[in-house]
Design a binder for these strands. Sequence first.
DNA 1: TTGTATGCGTTATCAG
DNA 2: CTGATAACGCATACAA
Lengths: 345, 345
Amino acid sequence: MDSITIKDVARICGVGVSTVSRAINNHPDINPETKNRILQVIRENDYIPNNSARNLKRTVSRSIVVLIKGIDNPFFSSMIRIIEAETQKARYSFILHRVDLMEDEMDVAMEVIKEKKPKGIIFLGGYFSHSYEKLKKLDVPFVLVTIAIADPKEREQYSSVSVDDFQESYKMVSYLCSQGHTRIGILAADEGDESIGKLRFEGYLKALRDHGIRPDPRLFFHSAPDAECYTMGNGYRLMNQVLASGEDMTALFAVSDSIAIGACKAVFDAGKSVPEDYSIAGFDGLDMAQYYNPSITTIRQPVEDMALAAIRLLFDVIHDSANNRQQVFKGQLIEGNSIRRIENG
Amino acid sequence: MDSITIKDVARICGVGVSTVSRAINNHPDINPETKNRILQVIRENDYIPNNSARNLKRTVSRSIVVLIKGIDNPFFSSMIRIIEAETQKARYSFILHRVDLMEDEMDVAMEVIKEKKPKGIIFLGGYFSHSYEKLKKLDVPFVLVTIAIADPKEREQYSSVSVDDFQESYKMVSYLCSQGHTRIGILAADEGDESIGKLRFEGYLKALRDHGIRPDPRLFFHSAPDAECYTMGNGYRLMNQVLASGEDMTALFAVSDSIAIGACKAVFDAGKSVPEDYSIAGFDGLDMAQYYNPSITTIRQPVEDMALAAIRLLFDVIHDSANNRQQVFKGQLIEGNSIRRIENG
DNA sequence: TTGTATGCGTTATCAG
DNA sequence: CTGATAACGCATACAA
């Protein structure tokens, strides 16, 4: 670990450390010749600046941190790519930091801020039930993506990018109704959910009611509280419960595409078919949904646009902190082949 | 950013900074009472140690870094989970660091080492064509996962965990032959590939030859050099080329499950079916492969075992650096419904 | 068991 | 344009 430091570089070049520092950090007030000479020496000796020392000394670090909860959520994959690209385009460095499902993203944020001194933070996924106070402590500009904050009172306090999960669910379930379905089950998050799972559930309820259908609790299939909800495995389990229940229904609204896919598989394994025996709708618009067989009818969240909006919004807030705003995107209903039309609705 | 430091804590408690440091780091030589008092104050004031300062000061940091190339590869998702769990079980902290597809993982490793001073590194994904020299510079124990190092001469230099991509491909293609297929195409990586894509391709060639089938270049469908190879989109494109080629074949070996799934979709969109018109085999054993319809016949890499082996091997090497070894796992052929048997082989 | 002092590698401030 | 030098926040050797 006896690696070369800025001092060594300075000594080799016969200059002071501050000059080397200037060379590294592209400071304007340095003789181009000396700069090149230093850069040359740096390359020849594989000098790598110590990031810890830099972060320790610096007050801010021209970097953007993305805090992601649920790193295996394919929904985020393309977002990351876009955010990184945009970040680098702005000549900021991009730091991805994963937060465990059990961790409080706010606590993690505080730590990362201390360590990295980023210019801004993007929160991908997770919940934000009662973090108002913590939110305020965060003195770094940030944008919430995909995150439901219940209370709209605190509008000024934060920026966010999302779809209206309630409305979009409503749209999907209304569509099911319009296709003649009347007995529509739901494969939902766990009952205690206070996040998007809840919003999507409520959109479902509202849509049914507005279509003159009385929601039937026997058609609610909630995830186990301890299960990882938005997974194919969970969808598979839930659908098997549906099959075992013997309840009569023609359609199911799965609150995510992965759940929908798992559900389809359960139907197939039971020797039945989608959409003939069960119509199944998803939510999110994952690539997987359109590659599946049958392709899943779903609500597509405009991930690319959302990612772009998130990073741009963040830069806006960085440049003018008064600029906080909530940006809500429209989802798009994509018709696949997982839903059939019932003639005698 | 005027946050509280160790000095403040010391002042508040009326003790010296070193005592606070001892409390934080669980040093043995400290009065339990003072320790508790300090910890109490720390909690009350939300003191968060500055990681940069710690890393700067420390020579090693009781942490494991996982460097992952291709973070959206679902193949790695479960691995990460396992590695993290095991890492924490050993009371090490877990640092996940993503490396861009364009970056040299070795350079990134050097940087991260300087910054974090980890006890060990796990490389997930990526290539390692000619990095021997760089490898040696890495004076931190490390394990390569899923990475093909061509040259076996350097055995002593590194540890690795993988499957034998050549053998496993051979297995898969032999299976296709055994099912009576004789005209077997391949959906492969790009022609210049020097990594697992190449090994899998060669396994395919060997299997054909050993079964008395002469490989026919017209049945080789390589990815475009600039395409992201292991994706559904790429599989879709490749399969459309197959369909457009008019070449006669009954089966295709896709070098990954995602490619296989994309290929299936292309077949469906062409109004044909799997496995009736085309038998399609995959590789990897993603969850997705079994949830797909039809489920994909594939080679399952024992991800859980491999992840566990990787982290344990790493700890072994950390404790005894002479312990370098290469661990090769057997893949398991999982029969799905994507391959049909041809009677008159 | 505890406190003091030093330095980790940088950047920033200031004087040249 | 350049070079000393003082922090940054913490861990540790050493003294008490």
